[in-house]
């Protein structure tokens, strides 16, 4: 059985937090297992934060829509916005952040996409007209791949 839901919220950090919390509450009510919920929430938060911070980059009036489709052991989330496209019009390459440097020079950002790649089973980006759609799939029974790969990028397929 497929369970669909859709949530809309303003592209601000506070509204994004409430929106993400609402999506997660809905998914848990629909039976998303607790052991998967942490990964899903983090991946969703990273994608939505990217949209708020870079896609709209503080421009007022932006909106984010999250469509969720939970079917048995598979969850698909689509994050839709009308902000700027991803640089180059495609997903960034999966890079690990260089931590081999003195503490004073450690990076304070740049971790988002690495987390998104690590936590999702498939990832796909489409730009149509003024709409960006970032689609993520999670195979909840763990058949997708080994999820914990510290500092490495998981292999991705985008069907």
């Amino acid at each position: 059985m497929s369970q669909r839901s859709s949530h809309r919220f303003d592209a601000t950090q506070l509204a994004a937090r409430d929106g993400i919390t609402a999506v997660m509450a809905q998914l848990r009510a629909q039976g998303l297992p607790d052991r998967a919920a942490g990964d899903v929430e983090l991946a969703l938060a990273e994608v939505v934060n990217n949209v708020v911070e870079h896609g709209y980059a503080g421009a007022p009036g932006g909106e984010v829509r999250v469509d969720a489709d939970l079917t048995g052991a598979r969850l698909e989330l689509r994050v839709v916005d009308t902000g700027r496209p991803l640089p180059g019009g495609h997903l960034p390459p999966c890079r690990t952040v260089d931590l081999d440097r003195p503490p004073a020079e450690l990076p304070e950002g740049g971790f988002g996409w690495g987390l998104i790649y690590s936590l999702t089973d498939t990832l796909r980006y489409d730009r149509k007209g003024v709409c960006n759609t970032l689609s993520m799939r999670f195979f909840l029974d763990g058949t997708g791949r080994e999820k914990v790969r510290a500092g490495r990028c998981a292999p991705q397929t985008a069907p």
Binding site: E46, P107, E108, G109
Partner: peptide
């Protein structure tokens, strides 16, 4: 119970604020 990459970056910043 929840931290994202922005929160992680803020903890790194807090560590750097302490100096060497």
């Amino acid at each position: 119970s929840f931290i994202d990459s922005s929160g992680l970056g803020a903890i790194v910043a807090a560590m750097k604020q302490l100096g060497t």
